[in-house]
Write a protein that binds this DNA or RNA. Structure first.
Lengths: 222, 222
DNA sequence: CGCGCGGTTGACCAGTATCAACCGGAGTGG
DNA sequence: CCACTCCGGTTGATACTGGTCAACCGCGCG
């Protein structure tokens, strides 16, 4: 646990209320963040207003790694629920990695995991049908949430995700997302009511959406 | 330049002929690789045979970072043209980062860039039409190739990419990919004949597909 | 010469988008 | 306290992008 090092570099805590933004696309930032609590989402907007949610962020996730090497951030980050973050100065980043290499190792670990997640999302968008995508997302969210102890019981997650957000994550229209949710609910595969996801048979759902086996490796928490 | 360190850890060079595999999904590997020359592609296959190409790999890119933390690799890597790689022992990885922190920094850099690329691809798959996707991919490939000096002249790239591969990268059917290529060629936006991409007006194409401004930062070559 | 692979084209179909309208609840101001 | 509005969700009708099936072409190669 690198908490000691981290304290040294931590430059403050940040609270972001539900619906508020931490970062806006095409701006610059001097900070890196780590999610301490809450859930956030990261998205990119095109000029004509189309929006793609790239990923959800859970406690332990790193925000702004890309911006550590590049001036402008190419996505916005918004809180899905009230969230708490740990802030670092970007300029300390090189120093930090060099002085605490095992922390550099953990950061690389997180970056690799994030890449794996994006890869999975990419496969979903590229190859799966609407029903498969929704199921995939539901299972994936339950897995991530479960890893941070956010589940009420084994197959239920309370999280105020709007259908418009599901649509923007999965590359579907809002209307079709709605119909797909209904269909999955009717079939008993995924029961995603406003604000609450429930999956009766998670193995069945995971198999249907071919969600990659959930890695139990402990995620470093920095 | 870390070439000195790298030599110490390098455990060999690997050649992979066009069409041959470096890694196969769901196997394990003891190695990490760096592309020294050539172009490769990384893809994931679903149980029913659907395939998603996740990214193209150019010289300087790292392969297998995810597998450094996770046993099984979740994608296959195949050579698009004859390629040459530098091989490292996975078990040395932690050691390497700790002993040569600035190398850890470069690896993190590469990981962040890879993440940025996947993010862009994700936006394409989620939000763009077939014509936009093809244009996006063409421009992106030209940008990447240009960074490694593979371009014959400013707007032409020779690379034996099959239409089936374009389709699998963009989440389109083979037939529709073919028609889209024709359409773009007719319109003079992108001229993608078998084995050769040519873009008459690259700014126009980049604007049409909203390809993010290409970062000139020098990519570390390890 | 024949085969196979990559590419091309046509006909038809399905999944998903779009447009439009409506519903119910929460907040708000008169 | 009620009317109004806004937001998120729901539903129907219709349009269209892109998928599927099937056939054919040209070329390189054994």
């Amino acid at each position: 646990m690198q908490l000691a090092y981290m304290q040294e570099y931590k430059s403050g805590e940040v609270f972001v209320g539900r619906g508020q933004h931490l970062l806006k696309q095409n701006t610059t930032t001097d900070h890196l963040y780590t999610v301490l609590g809450g859930v956030m989402l990261r998205y990119r907007t095109l000029d004509d207003g189309r929006r793609q949610i790239v990923n959800f962020l859970f406690p332990g996730d790193l925000i702004g790694l890309q911006s550590a090497f590049d001036d402008e951030v190419c996505h916005s980050v918004e809180a899905l629920v009230d969230s708490r973050l740990c802030r670092f100065e970007k300029q300390d980043f090189h120093d930090l990695i060099v002085k605490h290499p095992s922390l550099g190792f953990d950061i690389t670990w997180l970056a690799a995991k994030e890449e794996t997640a994006l890869e999975s999302h990419l496969v979903s968008l590229g190859q799966r049908s609407a029903k498969e995508r929704v199921t995939y997302l539901a299972v994936w969210l339950l897995n991530r949430a479960s890893a941070t102890g956010m589940l009420e019981d084994d197959n239920r997650l309370t999280l105020p995700i709007k259908q418009a957000q599901i649509a923007d994550m999965l590359g579907l229209s809002l209307v079709h997302t709605n119909r797909t949710l209904k269909a999955l609910s009717r079939e008993g595969l995924v029961d995603w009511k406003p604000g609450r996801i429930r999956i009766a048979d998670i193995d069945k759902a995971a198999k249907y959406a071919e969600v990659p086996r959930y890695s139990k490796n402990d995620r470093p928490f920095i």
